[in-house]
């Protein structure tokens, strides 16, 4: 019987816990109306960036395609011409496809990118009715004309290299000269 009394006390404790929980505010975030704020460097869907003058950052170097462990990126580069200066370098990506079903959102592409052209942003609402709809093309990846963001990696200079740098004549050997953006210059003595 005293065992039973102890059991009954335990039952009462349990009931009081659930009753107190009922008076708590729910922790649910009602999703489509209210969205959770993601940390700044959440790795969601990819975005291709532009410079302030509207040119694309991507120079079609294929480094992201090469480093991608899932083989999710497919690029066809093309030459820039005087009339059609798409990117700030010699070449640009004519085709830039990302297969969101293959991508593992590891972020290697944004680490490999020499011009900060591709970053993973905090759009995590990735869903579609067909496989084709989740193989997204350059038009969907590229940020709209007139916007020039740096994305989640803030260490890059938003300014484009000078237009003349696009014509590589061998006289300059900086990364900006080949359209690879202006990295903050190295401190002397910090490495090679």
């Amino acid at each position: 019987m005293d065992e039973v009394i102890n059991d009954l006390i335990a039952l009462g404790k349990g009931l009081s816990i659930t009753f107190r929980n009922m008076l708590q505010k729910p922790v649910t975030i009602t999703y489509p109306e209210n969205k959770r704020k993601f940390p700044a460097r959440t790795r969601g869907r990819h975005v291709l960036h532009r410079y302030e003058d509207g040119r694309e950052r991507c120079v079609g170097c294929l480094l992201c395609q090469g480093t991608c462990p899932a083989g999710a990126i497919y690029i066809e580069p093309a030459e820039n011409t005087k009339e059609n200066q798409v990117s700030a370098g010699e070449r640009h990506a004519r085709v830039f496809d990302v297969d969101l079903l293959r991508c593992i959102y590891c972020g290697h592409c944004e680490l490999a990118c020499p011009t900060n052209a591709i970053t993973l942003e905090n759009n995590t609402a990735i869903a579609g009715y067909t496989r084709e709809s989740l193989l997204i093309h350059k038009e969907e990846l590229l940020e709209p004309k007139g916007t020039a963001t740096l994305g989640s990696t803030q260490a890059w200079d938003p300014k484009p290299p000078s237009p003349s740098a696009a014509e590589f004549d061998g006289s300059e050997t900086s990364s900006a000269a080949v359209g690879q953006g202006n990295r903050p210059s190295r401190q002397p003595g910090a490495g090679h």
Partner: peptide, 13 residues
């Protein structure tokens, strides 16, 4: 609704 509130959820709304 009530079970949801006891589990800090909202329930069908």
């Amino acid at each position: 609704r009530i079970v949801a509130r006891m589990q800090w959820r909202v329930g069908p709304n």
